[in-house]
């Protein structure tokens, strides 16, 4: 039996949940699939979920804490007899799956790109060493793994499952949330964007990001920022690409006035095409760039924007 923990926004399943269902279906040798919808207002999401998996467990445990999610997933794994638990990868899931692995005495395979089984083991590929190395791992069952976003086709609906509510013993509350500052943005999310336009410190001022935003908008992409820009307070942390920010893998990554330190490359080096504009021909970013311009970003960017607008017309 395989358990998929289905990520949702309290009204709908997220894309990652449907990718995780696909991952579970690839492991058919290990038996049937059950889904778990955990959180608040799980019933609407469960109705959607039963179109994808034959059994849907719901666990009404309230708002997210890693302890609650781990306890709910553990209860569902015990109830279903699952030897494998799959969840879409995020900072949040990489916290509670670590706890779940301990509860289950399971091995943990984090942020996997691909997964397969021979019936007794799970093998997986993933990145390591700041995204520079591709590594193949293997672990005997039981196994908990997270699936990196945008690595797997989303599952198609299949069948008409049943819903079963679980009673989960609530762990003692050890963490009290005093305040949440969300950075929900309009437009394309950075992690899912096919084009990312990133500005670096070399832009010179927060105002110069108006041009970065305009180029991103005209290409249907998202804005990224370097750590130096975020540290300077020019852009919100949610836009940071790199080791301590987000990891992105768009079709086109356009780096404007970004020098390209290793920590930054860790967040974007798997992009299909890397484009760089920098006045320093020796900047490390050019070593990993497919296309580039050595020149002043303040002159190049407006001209790129003009040319991009003409393409659309």
């Amino acid at each position: 039996m395989i358990l998929v923990v289905l990520d949702h926004d309290t009204t709908r399943l997220r894309k990652g949940a449907l990718e995780a269902v696909s991952r579970a279906r690839q492991l058919a040798a290990l038996g049937a699939i059950a889904g778990l919808v955990v959180g608040e207002n799980t019933s609407a999401v469960a109705e959607e979920a039963r179109k994808y998996v034959p059994t849907v467990y719901t666990a009404e445990v309230g708002g997210y804490t890693p302890e609650r999610w781990a306890a709910a997933a553990y209860a569902a794994a015990q109830k279903s007899g699952a030897q494998v638990v799959v969840a879409p990868s995020s900072r949040q899931s990489r916290t509670w799956t670590a706890r779940l692995a301990l509860k289950m005495g399971a091995a943990l395979l984090e942020d996997t790109l691909e997964t397969a089984t021979d019936g007794s083991k799970i093998t997986a590929t993933r990145y390591s060493f700041l995204n520079r190395v591709t590594e193949k791992q293997a672990a005997s069952l039981p196994v908990v793994f997270t699936a990196k976003p945008n690595t797997t086709p989303v599952a198609e609906p299949q069948g008409d499952g049943m819903i079963e509510a679980l009673t989960v013993e609530q762990p003692a509350a050890q963490v009290e949330v005093l305040e949440r500052m969300s950075e929900q943005k309009k437009g394309v999310s950075l992690s899912e964007a096919t084009v990312v336009v990133t500005g670096g410190r070399g832009l010179g001022s927060p105002e110069a990001f108006a041009g970065v935003e305009a180029l991103a908008n005209s290409l249907g992409g998202a804005v990224g920022a370097t750590r130096a820009v975020v540290d300077a307070g020019w852009r919100p942390y949610g836009e940071q690409v790199g080791q301590t920010g987000k990891t992105v893998q768009p079709s086109a990554y356009i780096a404007l006035a970004v020098s390209g330190a290793v920590q930054h490359q860790a967040g974007m080096n798997k992009s299909k095409y890397i484009v760089a504009v920098n006045k320093d021909a020796e900047a490390p970013i050019f070593k990993v760039a497919d296309y580039g311009i050595v020149g002043d970003v303040h002159q190049v960017l407006p001209a790129m924007l003009e040319a991009a607008k003409k393409l659309k017309d």
Binding site: S90, R91, Q92, Q174, V175, E176, V177, L178, E179, R180, M181, S182, E183, Q184, K185, Y237, G238
Partner: peptide
């Protein structure tokens, strides 16, 4: 930090 945004907690 969260996936998106931040939180202040008492633990």
């Amino acid at each position: 930090d969260l996936d998106e945004g931040q939180e202040i907690v008492r633990v």
